[in-house]
């Protein structure tokens, strides 16, 4: 229980920072800024979820976006008005075309479904290690994507699923982000998290110490899937339109670049990386569209954002493989900084 309190205390400072960001956007921002800020929080939720598994277990996960997709499609199907569904997905199985729930119930069911699918996939994936595990997660991403594209009766296939009523705004997103960070911190500090981190450092040693690696991995995997699913729900209930490609490689790369840049071994790294990449990404996106700067019309350069993400991944892994923050959380860096100050005196 004390861990719970400790984790809560350690979440306070990032939470205050996020809330201040949110307030600033609400007070001074225009519609465009709200959208950007909202997507930042969505990505933060997803990256925090990704960190729970990938950061602690040290197993690269490329399949996380499939859970965002599953939760997003689930909430879309459950929450969209029946009148609209009659034209969008008239042939939906299980009578889904005739069901309409409020967004809280729909979200809870969507997350529960994500957790169950996470658990089922985890039963298989958590038996794998290293490269095999990563290829397994990649297989998951492809399988789920293929299902989205081909299960037309329920997802509309490659065409966008539109008309999801907008139910959430910035405050919800901030709340979800704070919750995600708190849960990620709490898991990292918990005894399961510690065991998983030990297994990430040295698989054999952890196993010989009696860590049941499959069990702790499975826990982390399901938790990670659920948090990432929360990101998917946030996305669907704000954007109002989703498509299979919203949850495929582009998003996968974006969130992985965020985690790598900040440092995947800590939640603080996840937050830092998400913030820096989000800011950089917006900047590059502006450049990509060929803006006019000081009277000079720049050419449009499609592909610049992708180039930016690829460059971050390659450069950081080569030069700073542990990311900006390494294995330490904010408070560890703060303590080290104070110690250095004291040493200087």
């Amino acid at each position: 229980m004390s861990y719970l309190l400790l984790s809560a205390r350690r979440t306070v400072i990032p939470a205050i920072f996020l809330i201040l960001c949110c307030v600033a956007v609400v007070l001074f921002g225009e519609g465009y800024h709200v959208r950007v800020a909202y997507m930042f929080f969505v990505n933060l939720v997803i990256v925090a979820g990704l960190q729970v598994f990938m950061g602690n277990s040290n197993v690269a996960n490329l399949g996380h976006m499939s859970f965002a997709g599953i939760a997003a499609y689930a909430v879309a199907v459950l929450y969209t008005p029946t009148a609209l569904k009659a034209t969008l997905i008239p042939n939906a199985p299980f009578g889904l075309a005739t069901i309409q729930l409020d967004f809280v119930t729909a979200s809870v069911i969507a997350l529960a479904l994500t957790a169950v699918i996470g658990w089922l996939s985890g039963l298989a994936l958590c038996r794998l290690s290293g490269v095999a595990a990563t290829i397994g997660t990649l297989a998951l991403l492809v399988i789920v994507h293929v299902v989205f594209v081909n299960w037309i009766d329920i997802t509309r296939g490659p065409r966008a699923f539109f008309g999801i009523p907008v139910a959430l705004g910035l405050p919800w997103a901030v709340g979800a982000a704070v919750l995600a960070i708190f849960v990620a911190r709490w898991f990292r500090d918990s005894s399961d998290g510690l065991q998983l981190r030990a297994s990430g450092d040295n698989l054999l040693a952890a196993r010989s110490m009696g860590v049941n690696i499959q069990r702790v991995r499975l826990k982390a995997w399901v938790l990670s899937a659920t948090i990432v699913g929360m990101g998917g729900v946030l996305f669907a209930l704000f954007m109002g339109t989703i498509a299979p490609n919203s949850f495929y490689f582009t998003q996968t790369f974006l969130t992985i670049a965020m985690l790598i840049l900040g440092g995947m071994r800590s939640v603080s790294g996840a937050i830092t990386g998400t913030f820096i990449v989000a800011v950089g990404f917006e900047f590059v996106r502006t450049l990509e569209n060929g803006p006019e700067i000081l009277g000079v019309q720049l050419p449009t350069m499609f592909g610049l954002t992708g180039f930016f993400l690829g460059a971050i991944i390659v450069i950081f892994l080569a030069l700073r493989p542990d990311g900006l923050l390494g294995t330490d959380e904010f408070e560890d860096h703060w303590a080290a900084f104070r110690q250095r100050l004291r040493a200087r005196k």
């Binding site: 690269a60 490329l62 790369f253 992985i256 670049a257 790598i260 592909g303 610049l304 954002t305 992708g306 180039f307 993400l309 690829g310 460059a311 971050i312 991944i313 390659v314 892994l317 080569a318």
Partner: peptide, 12 residues
């Protein structure tokens, strides 16, 4: 992951 990065880089 580096290989993934290279892949995105070259594509773009």
């Amino acid at each position: 992951l580096t290989a993934f990065g290279v892949s995105i880089l070259v594509q773009n």
